[in-house]
Each structure stands twice: as structure tokens, then as C-alpha cells.
């Protein structure tokens, strides 16, 4: 290609002059052809996503209308019965509730800790910051399966000490079966969840902090602003954009929590920690026991998954609206 990149994107004019009016219809084909290499570069990603992410989602939509154990092709058409069944299933709604509790406790707590740590570790005068960063990030690289096995061993199997931790302090009457007691199990799962993925948010925040020009702090300091002032009038506002992305990502991740719960409690005891994805999993793959004596119900699982997706989309829309309103109010008060 010897053309001087006709497809190159122009940087929007800072003066805000409007972009050239849309080209005529005939121009479209030319523009497509001119951008040929752009499409070629896009293709590997687009093909993979279309084939292995988008297509399967749509393909599995069809299952929602069948009662099907996942073998052969679905044949027993049941219409909307699967949706009705899920909507009337108290275990499903319990799972939705647990998932939301998980997300709404985990996200704020984890982000707060991550932000505080990021502020501390971002200080260039702090020695061993690389070391500490590594320490707090390391849980992220471990698989949920290993985390589950080790935590379960520690907490219940071999953790008499862990169980009796508070027994002597008079806080509780006796030994607690942390993952086996319906009152504590979800809280413990959340705590382990916070521990496990804090590292991601830590580095996101650190990355965000690094984009704040040091001159801003210098200027503020010269003006006599203390660290607290600096935090509230420079750090927080400058982090807002990144922060929104971090919050959204954290919620997306939390709403899809699965491995950790599956390996720690399997949703038990008696559904006390069942989240939506373990609920779907149990439907799609039958019971957890050995050789799977329980018939899977793929149609029901797909319907539950679809309904949950709808819920999430509604929630995301609400979130976007709320953030936008918040942003507008901020902008309004700044004027």
C-alpha cells in the first residue's frame, strides 16, 4: 500500500469546527474500499468475537423454549414454560438477592481499600513500593479453584483456630463454622472475594493516579493545600472518569461471580450462598455429585441466564442514568 493512509482518523479540531458533511452515498463504497486494511486488521478480533461470543449467545437463546437435557438436539418444545418456572422459583430470586448483596458489599469495600492502598503505594518516596504492589496483587493471579481449595482447607478443615478465633473474646457463644453457618457463609465468601480481586482495582487506581500531572499537586501545595484538600480537590475529581470505568468493571465482574462460590460452598448451606451463576450451573450440569445422577435441564438454565441478563441490562441502564445525573449535578454545582 503506497497510499498515504486515507483512512486515517483526523483528530477533531480543537476549535470545534464541525467535521465535513457526510459524504455522498457513492462515497460510502469508496470509503469502505479505502479503509480496506482497517477491516483486515479488525477481522481477527471480529471473527473470534462473532463466532465464539456473539453467535453462541444467540444460539443458546433458542434453548429457552425447550425442555432439554443437553444431549442430541432439543425436541421437547415447551414455549414459555421455562421462563414461568424460573420467575416462580424462590431459589432463583434468592440467588439474585445473594448476587446483588455480594456485588453491593464487595464493590464499595474493595474499591475503598484499593483506592487507599493505591494512594499509599503511589507515593514515589515510599520504599519497596514494587514489593508491596506485588504482594497485594498476587491473589489475582491465582485461580479461584486453588483459592477455594486452600481457603476451605484453612477455614474449616484445619482451621480449628480460625473457628475459635472469636470464641474466647466473648463476641460469640462458641465455635463458628464459617462457611457452614448460613449467617456467616455469604459474608466469608464476600471477604474472600474482596481479597481475591482487590489487585485488579489496585492497579487500575494506580494507573489512574499516574495520569494526574504532578504539577497540579505542586501548585496546590504552593497554595497551601494540605493532603486532605489535595485529595478532595485534585485526586478525586481527576479520578472520576477512570473511577466510573473501574466501578462499572467491578460490578460486571461481581454480577458474574461463579468459580469462587462454587468451590467455596457450592451455593450452600441450603442455598444460603447460591448466586445466579451457580444456580444456572446447577441447572445446566445437574447436581454436583459424582457421576451426575441428576438430569440437567439446559432449557431452564438458559431461560434463567436470559432473565438474569435482562435484569443486568436494566440495572446497567439505571446505573448509567444515575451516573449521568450525578455528573450533571456536579457540573451544575461547579458553575
Amino acid at each position: 500500500m503506497t497510499l498515504s493512509a486515507p483512512g486515517l482518523r483526523r483528530r477533531p479540531d480543537p476549535a470545534g469546527t464541525p467535521e465535513p458533511a457526510p459524504v455522498r452515498r457513492t462515497g460510502l463504497r469508496r470509503r469502505v474500499r479505502a479503509a480496506g486494511w482497517s477491516y483486515a486488521y479488525l477481522a481477527p478480533m471480529a471473527v473470534l468475537v462473532l463466532a465464539f461470543v456473539v453467535y453462541p449467545i444467540f444460539a443458546s437463546l433458542g434453548y429457552t423454549f425447550y425442555q432439554w437435557n443437553g444431549i442430541g438436539s432439543p425436541s421437547n418444545f415447551v414455549g414459555l414454560a421455562n421462563f414461568r418456572q424460573v420467575l416462580h422459583d424462590s431459589i432463583f430470586w434468592g440467588a439474585v438477592e445473594h448476587t446483588f448483596v455480594y456485588a453491593f458489599v464487595l464493590v464499595p469495600v474493595q474499591l475503598l481499600i484499593a483506592l487507599m492502598l493505591a494512594l499509599v503505594l503511589n507515593n514515589p518516596r515510599l520504599r519497596f513500593r514494587m514489593f508491596f504492589r506485588t504482594v497485594y496483587f498476587v491473589p489475582v493471579v491465582t485461580s479461584a479453584a486453588v483459592v477455594g481449595v486452600v481457603m476451605q482447607l484453612m477455614l474449616s478443615n484445619f482451621g480449628d483456630a480460625a473457628g475459635s478465633l472469636f470464641a474466647g473474646t466473648g463476641l460469640t457463644g462458641s465455635h463458628i463454622d464459617w462457611l457452614g453457618d448460613p449467617h456467616t457463609a455469604l459474608a466469608v465468601v464476600i471477604a474472600i472475594g474482596i481479597w481475591h480481586t482487590l489487585g485488579y482495582n489496585l492497579v487500575y487506581f494506580m494507573a489512574g493516579l499516574q495520569t494526574i500531572p504532578a504539577e497540579l499537586y505542586e501548585a496546590a501545595r504552593i497554595d497551601g493545600a494540605g493532603p486532605v484538600r489535595c485529595f478532595f480537590s485534585i485526586t478525586l475529581p481527576m479520578l472520576r472518569q477512570v473511577g466510573v470505568v473501574i466501578v462499572v468493571l467491578a460490578f460486571i465482574g461481581s454480577f458474574q461471580v461463579f468459580d469462587l462460590v462454587q468451590v467455596l460452598t457450592g451455593g450452600g448451606p441450603y442455598f444460603a450462598t447460591e448466586v445466579v451463576n451457580t444456580y444456572i450451573y446447577h441447572l445446566a450440569f445437574g447436581g454436583g455429585s459424582g457421576s451426575g445422577a441428576v438430569q440437567p435441564d439446559v432449557g431452564l438454565a438458559s431461560a434463567a441466564s436470559f432473565l438474569y441478563g435482562l435484569l443486568l441490562i436494566l440495572f446497567s441502564a439505571a446505573q448509567v442514568l444515575a451516573l449521568r445525573r450525578l455528573g450533571r449535578r456536579r457540573a451544575g454545582s461547579a458553575l
Binding site: V53, Y55, P56, I57, A59, S60, Y63, G70, I252, I280, A284, V298, A301, S302, S305, F306, Y308, G309, L312, I313, S316
Partner: peptide
């Protein structure tokens, strides 16, 4: 945002 559900068979 889309649910990935039971996509293993496709």
C-alpha cells in the same frame, strides 16, 4: 453485559 449463559454446546 450480555449474559453468556449456556453457550458451551454452540
Amino acid at each position: 453485559f450480555l449474559p453468556h449463559g449456556y453457550t458451551i454446546i454452540p
